[in-house]
Write a protein that binds this DNA or RNA. Structure first.
Length: 802
DNA sequence: TGGAATGATGTTTTT
DNA sequence: CATCATTCCA
């Protein structure tokens, strides 16, 4: 009981809540993790069995930190027994335990995004479709959205609205691809990320005994970052909590930044409908940041129309104002930030780990890496090409996967001839074709004792069979050797270690080191598991469940003293004394991809809010006037977000000047500096649609600052947004965000990928088409003139080829 | 069949 | 500018 006294009143009340549904709306930096951990500790102290507590987070790191914090409150033994993990990892475990209910192998594979994309590409080509029309990535998005709304392939095919959407998008056979994808995954005993949530739902829906079992087991359920849950997650939680309704959700609508992957703020807004007698707690006092930072963040987020009412305030000192810095190039921006860090590090007694550089896209990290390296400042990059996505790591893991689950076709294809063992692509292709004909996995075909593959030459077949024999020999030891032991054996025995070791190029050495690092990681895993459950041998397949769902952010050794470089998304939940938010430019932040609709722009703004509120003491914003993008030098303009900050919190008054409208590319240094006044007659292009300001996003310009009373879910702009699907019929009362039909695409034959000629900009390729007939607009990439937005009624485009 | 050279192509954010 | 994919050659 005493430890609750370390909390403020609001926090304490929330943490002391025992039974019944509750929601905590927690402003940034208001101590929400504290409330979660203290509440769990308190529950256990009050006699609740730790085994009956389930806490769901979005990152493994958050889960680990919470476990640690709880351990310091009530001791490690108790803390360890709380079910704490990400949605995906917890449900993957449960699915593994219950796999026989849906005819899956216990050791099923979890396909990552790359696996499922390559499978999709395979299917698309296999169906004789054009992968330019059916882009694997966008089909993937479509399927993902469907699954997040609990639609399987059959539902998808039977859904008239979806079908007509696909018709109109010119991709009528998407459902067929989905269907095939589903079959192929089943055949390979594989699930993708979305399947984990989908299956979990189906499991609870179709097996009342299991529903009962887990409802009873998880007597207390806590959910972190509730604003980021999607429909599938929402429904799982709802079902699990239905028996006791001891459900605690914590979130901040202002920090909802995963709408693009199906997260639905409505889940927060609807909580009171599902649990009318819920108790609401609000945490509004910010302990993290200075007053200027809090005020700046508040002023920005106030421009969003959809929010839960709350006031974030702080008693902290005002601190220094937000700095805004203009640089001429992206490299200069890198140098600026690095020198700043260097000086601050020397001037104040701060550590390098107190600094973070946050950017919108991972591709921006390069200039900062270079500059930091030059000044000998240690840094660590998060995200981007994650450790687990490196080729050599994926190769080795593919061997592990194939060992655990022979039917994992993606893994099979990856390593059948790596290291080279003389199995060429024709042999493999024949195997693939034959497997498709017989509707079986590659492995099952290859090892079929009665009907071995018919179409492969003798030599090739023999080598393949040898390969299978080797994999089988690994399999035989799956349960007798520890994860690390077997991993090492596989790494050596396959020749992979040898192949990398003999490669003396710098990359080769790095790869070899990475393999070592992976093996060390498995060693650590093995030891850790043995500590938790000494009586059980941690196997390689146990490791695989973990590794599929790991990210770089989970990999950090906290004792490292280095500057953090990361995307704003991955910075969520973290805090740093000194934060640099870089690349504050139109088209970049807000991203050009996210300006189709008001709601997308608002998500970008929340992202900016998240960025600002990571800072404790100082926050520095910067932008560059020119930047390399797609290998091209491009002009850029200061982000509109800079103008949205309350000027009282900003250090550089000159930025208060009125900014040019978006998309006025090519205005030049002078124009960009002086603002839009310099544009007319300047280097701006005649007929440039920018001067028309046709974008909805412009609504948010300072000239019309107060958010109009938009309906709760403003109708999305017509556009190419592919991500949302109508809520499925059995979704019940949930949200009803039916989207109006897209405008008929007729009128023009312009489509993505069309090559056109413009009489000033030359040859270019259509990247995107949007808008309705008279005002239809195309985004075209011209190698000579860069990315341009053109209003079709003005621009005379000549179609060169489809 | 394997590897190197050349050419096309693409950038949001992540479990 | 990178990475990837395809092509071309030994």
């Amino acid at each position: 009981m005493e430890f609750l006294n370390q909390l403020n009143t609001a926090q304490r009340e929330a943490a002391a809540h025992m039974d019944g549904p509750m929601m905590v709306i927690a402003g940034a930096g208001s101590g929400k993790t504290r409330v979660l951990t203290y509440r769990i500790a308190h529950l256990i102290q009050q006699g609740v069995d730790p085994f009956s507590v389930l806490a769901l987070t979005f990152t493994n790191k958050a889960a680990r930190e919470m476990t640690e914090r709880i351990a310091t409150l009530i001791g490690e033994r108790e803390a360890r027994n709380v079910w704490m993990g990400t949605f995906h990892s917890v449900f993957a475990r449960i699915l593994r335990a219950e796999s026989e209910r849906f005819n899956y192998d216990r050791n099923f594979t979890i396909y990552d995004t790359a696996d499922s994309r390559s499978l999709l590409k395979d299917i698309i080509l296999g169906l004789g479709l054009d992968d330019e029309v059916y882009k694997p990535a966008s089909v993937q998005g479509r399927i993902s959205a469907a699954k997040n709304n609990l639609l399987n392939a059959r539902d998808y095919l039977e859904h008239p609205e979806i079908q007509s959407e696909d018709q109109q998008a010119g991709r009528p056979r998407t459902g067929e691809i989905f269907q095939t994808y589903e079959n192929r995954c089943a055949r390979a005993q594989a699930m993708d990320f979305d399947d984990l949530l989908y299956r979990m739902n189906v499991l609870l829906r179709d097996f009342p005994d299991l529903l009962h079992k887990y409802q009873t087991r998880f007597r207390y359920i806590l959910v972190d970052e509730y604003q980021d849950t999607n429909f599938a997650q929402y429904l799982i939680i709802k079902q699990l909590a239905a028996r006791f309704e001891n459900l605690c959700v914590v979130g901040d609508d202002a920090q909802s930044i995963y709408g693009f992957r199906g997260a639905n703020i409505q889940n927060i807004l609807n909580f009171k409908k599902d649990y009318p007698d819920y108790k609401l707690y609000k945490l509004e006092q910010n302990y993290r940041s200075t007053r200027h930072i809090v005020q700046a963040a508040n002023s920005v987020i106030a421009l969003n129309s959809e929010q839960i009412e709350k006031t974030v305030w702080t008693e902290n000192e005002p601190g220094s104002k937000i700095g805004i810095h203009r640089l001429y190039t992206d490299n200069e921006e890198g140098r600026f930030v690095a020198t700043r860090i260097f000086d601050l590090h020397n001037g104040t007694q701060s550590h390098f780990r107190d600094f973070a550089v946050l950017y919108r896209t991972n591709a921006q990290s390069r200039s900062f890496e270079e500059s930091l390296r030059k000044l000998n400042i240690p840094y660590k990059i998060f995200g981007g090409l994650s450790f687990y996505q490196r080729k050599e790591i994926k190769d080795l893991i593919a061997y592990f996967r194939l060992t655990a689950n022979h039917r994992d076709d993606e893994a099979f294809k990856r390593v059948i001839n790596y290291p080279a063992r003389g199995i060429g692509k024709t042999s493999l292709e024949r195997l693939i074709i034959e497997a498709a004909e017989r509707e079986t996995s590659l492995w099952d075909l290859l090892t079929d004792p009665f009907q071995p593959p018919q179409t492969i030459g003798n030599a090739g077949l023999r080598k393949m069979v040898d390969f299978a024999t080797m994999i089988r020999s690994f399999r035989a030891e799956l349960h007798t050797r520890s994860a690390h032991d077997l991993a090492l054996h596989i790494a050596r025995h396959t020749g992979l270690v040898h192949a990398l070791h003999s490669d003396k190029s710098p990359e080769g050495v790095a790869r070899y080191d990475n393999i070592q690092e992976l093996l060390n990681g498995i060693q650590a895993f093995t030891e850790q598991q043995q500590q938790v459950q000494p009586e059980v041998l941690p196997t390689l397949s146990d490791f695989l469940v973990d590794v599929a769902l790991l990210t770089d952010a989970d990999n950090t050794e906290t004792d490292e003293n280095s500057v953090s470089l990361m995307s704003i998304h991955s910075a969520k939940g973290l805090e740093f004394a000194h934060v640099f938010v870089v690349g504050m430019e139109e088209q970049l932040f807000p991203s050009q991809m996210a300006m189709q609709s008001r709601s997308e722009l608002e998500e970008e703004r929340r992202l900016f809010y998240v960025a600002l509120t990571r800072a404790e003491k100082t926050c520095t914003l910067s932008y560059a006037l020119t930047r390399y993008r797609w290998g091209q030098l491009m002009q850029s303009e200061p982000s509109r977000f800079l103008d949205e900050i309350d000027p009282a919190c900003v250090d550089m008054p000159s930025t208060r000047e009125r900014k040019p409208t978006p998309f006025s590319g090519g205005a030049g240094f002078e124009a960009a500096r002086k603002g839009w006044r310099a544009m007319p007659g300047g280097s701006s292009t005649p007929g440039d649609p920018a001067t028309k300001g046709g974008l909805p996003a412009t609504d948010a310009e300072p000239s019309a600052p107060k958010a109009e009373e938009a309906p709760a879910s403003a109708p999305p702009r017509a556009g190419l947004k592919r991500f949302e699907l109508p809520v499925p019929p059995f979704a019940g009362k949930g949200s009803k965000r039916l989207r109006p039909n897209l405008p008929e695409g007729g009128e023009t034959e312009l489509a993505e990928g069309t090559v056109v000629r413009h009489d000033r900009f030359g040859k270019g390729k259509v990247v995107k088409v949007e808008g309705v007939a008279p005002n239809q607009k195309a985004t075209v990439f011209f190698p000579e003139a860069g990315l341009r937005q053109l209003l079709l009624k003005f621009a005379k485009l000549q179609v060169l080829e489809e």
